[in-house]
Design a protein around this nucleic acid. Structure first.
Length: 592
RNA sequence: GGAGCCGUAGUUCAGUUUGGUUAGAACGCUUGACUGUCACUCAAGAGGUCGCGAGUUCGAGUCUCGUCGGUUCCGCCA
């Protein structure tokens, strides 16, 4: 097809181009047919430019009046000044007086109108993703994503890292998320797994002396989805030799600084504050606290204050080695209705009710007030620094459960009263996670992070302990980067010692034999001069989502999956032919 | 695996509470009129398996059960 190729994009032209002869190629975003005059808004990913077609050019006018939305056209003409300017778009002072007009392709009426304030459901947007991506907002998101890619490459190049690709087809390993499996045709009955992360490869690259490795890589986890979780997602995976936690922090902070600066011009504050895991639970009831909550609502632990309490639930908590804890909300009138809602909220977590009292003009009121002694009141005023109208919510019971529930209550209150400054970004490091948790269902220890995470040196000797509380007290050399209540990156200083790695495998219930079968390659590698090493892996989708001001990472992924892990556009996953299955020696035993 | 919300015209929704005549609106689409619009305006028109399947009922978009899809949360995600 012969046609006039564009000389400019639809976002280029200004008054300075006046009287230039130009050609624009793009999509018809809007047509305003006044009978004589016809105006066309022509769109490409750079912007929108108005075309004017006058009725004296009969042939042109006939073509123009036939145009439908999303037709692709080529239009040649003169840049002229508009009689009435449109201040809402950058090209609003000019228009093209069209002399040539060619339809390059027609479009069926689209299932939804391509416009920034899209009305269509996500279902339709996913199904016709190519239409959705024509929207300026979506194009911007992908452009921001690209910006982050470029910054990452540039930053690590400057820092002396080597980008190395690792296999997509790899060995399936136990522990962690479910693997996506790929059957092998050659090795019948055997499977590859898609990487949950390139963890073992990057450690082996350290053994290989690669020293500073980075890769923007796809990771795959066959688990249920969330707004911030897709079955395949992208990580900025990095690993370094001869480093400690602070070295990893420094690189990551600099990386984040550069990303934020390049992508949105914001200079974030580094270094980021550090909290231990135990303190996070203690003060925020979660290992990924949102520090943007106004009024600095924190958890307070009140066991000491209520040592002599006669209030039955408090007495119970104390005798059962539990906790009495609370949060205070200042200078906000909380209605009975909201308190009822909050009560329902904590009941879902298994609490009988939500205790609270109000403090106003030095007076205590509310259901709990009558159970408070004067000494207790005095202590509570000190503990919560009560000096203005406040409401204090109190839960009692198992320490961890109390903390977690108060933590979610804190967020619920923040949401209800809009106590979060959405434009703010609050980074923090969380350190000193437990190395192990005890899985009651499986009756064994499981890695809290992953199985290659090293214990902090002062806890190493406890790997030999047979006491449960000692094993669970071991803190790990691992760390999370948290942004606005969301885990943004996770990493650790790894084990690089054969014997220690075996001990950890044994503790999580892998016999030497099993460990050899599943992880023999990395155990072997550790015996040939593995250097001390560690790393981290920031989640790229979440970073880009934050930079684009969206909560849902699907908004920054070109072709995402729906909540049930399906691609609505190409209708995958799909059944395959019997021939394909036969080649793989696979038999389907049940179908939905 | 569990819980909540949603599913009605091409699209976004109203109608479902309390079952009852011919299921409405806006945008889009078609036709016509219109020379400064930018949410163009005006007139006329086409367009419906009320997600699907059972059940209750004289009668179901509306009630019940199941199912499918979307979405949010819990579990899960080392």
């Amino acid at each position: 097809m012969n046609y006039n190729k564009r000389t400019h994009t639809c976002g280029d032209l200004r008054l300075s181009n006046l009287n230039n002869e130009v050609t624009l190629n793009g999509w018809v975003a809007k047509k305003r047919d006044l009978g004589g005059l016809i105006f066309i808004d022509l769109r490409d990913r750079y912007g929108v430019t108005q075309l004017k077609i006058t009725p004296d050019k009969k042939q042109l006018h006939d073509i123009a009046s036939k145009l439908g939305l999303e037709f692709v056209i080529s239009s040649k003409g003169m840049v002229i000044k508009r009689e009435s300017i449109n201040p809402n778009i950058p090209t609003g002072e000019i228009e093209i007086d069209v002399n040539e007009l060619q339809i390059l392709n027609e479009s069926l009426p689209t299932p939804f109108i391509v416009e920034d304030d899209v009305k269509a459901s996500e279902e339709l947007r996913f199904q016709y993703r190519y239409l959705d991506l024509r929207r300026q907002k979506m194009a911007q998101n992908l452009i921001t994503r690209n910006k982050v890619f470029q910054t990452v490459h540039k930053f690590f190049e400057k820092e002396g890292f080597i980008e190395i690709e690792t296999p997509i087809l790899m060995k399936s390993t136990p522990e962690g998320a479910r693997d996506y499996l790929v059957p092998s045709r050659i090795h019948k009955g055997k499977f590859f797994a898609l990487p949950q992360s390139p963890q073992t490869y990057k450690q082996i690259l350290m053994v290989a002396g690669m020293d500073k490795y980075v890769q923007i890589c796809k990771c795959f986890r066959d688990e249920d989805l969330r707004a911030d979780r897709q079955p395949e997602f992208t990580q900025i995976d990095l690993e370094m030799s001869f480093v400690d936690q602070d070295d990893v922090f420094k690189v990551t902070e600099n990386l984040m600084y550069n990303i934020w600066k390049d992508a949105s011009g914001i200079e974030i504050q580094t270094p980021f504050p550090k909290y231990t895991y135990d303190d996070c639970i203690k003060y925020f009831g979660t290992d990924k606290p949102d520090l943007r909550v106004k009024g600095e609502i924190k958890l307070h632990h009140l066991n000491k204050i209520f040592t002599n309490s006669e209030f039955a639930p408090f007495k119970d908590a104390l005798t059962n080695n539990g906790s009495i804890s609370g949060i205070s909300v200042k200078d906000i009138q909380i209605s009975r209705k909201v308190i009822d809602e909050l009560t329902e909220f904590v009941k879902k977590s298994g609490f009988g009710g939500l205790g609270y009292f109000k403090f106003s003009n030095n007076e205590f009121s509310g259901p709990l007030a009558k159970f408070l002694s004067d000494t207790e009141k005095e202590s509570l005023i000190g503990e919560f620094e009560l000096n203005s109208d406040s409401t204090v919510f109190i839960l009692s019971g198992d320490y961890k459960k109390v903390c977690e529930t108060l933590g979610s209550l804190r967020l619920k209150i923040a949401e209800t009263f809009q106590l979060i400054n959405e434009s703010d970004d609050k980074f923090l490091w969380v350190t000193d996670f437990p190395l192990f948790a005890f899985d009651e269902e499986e009756g064994r220890y499981v890695g809290e992070h992953h199985v290659f995470t090293s214990p902090k040196p002062e806890f190493e000797h406890l790997l030999d302990s047979d006491k449960k509380e000692e094993i669970l007290s071991i803190r790990a050399n691992c760390y999370d980067l948290v942004l606005n209540g969301q885990e943004l990156a996770s990493g650790s200083i790894r084990i690089h010692n054969y014997e220690m790695q075996k001990k950890v495998f044994n503790l999580i219930g892998l016999s030497d034999e099993e460990a050899r079968q599943k992880f023999g390659f990395i155990l072997d590698a550790f015996r040939y001069g593995a250097p001390p090493h560690g790393g981290i892996a920031p989640g790229l989708d979440r970073i880009v989502a934050r930079l684009c001001g969206v909560k849902d990472i699907r908004e920054v992924i070109a072709f995402p999956k729906s909540t049930s892990t399906a691609s609505l556009m190409d209708e995958s996953p799909s059944i395959v032919s019997d021939k394909q299955l036969k080649e793989l020696s696979i038999k389907i035993t049940s179908e939905k």
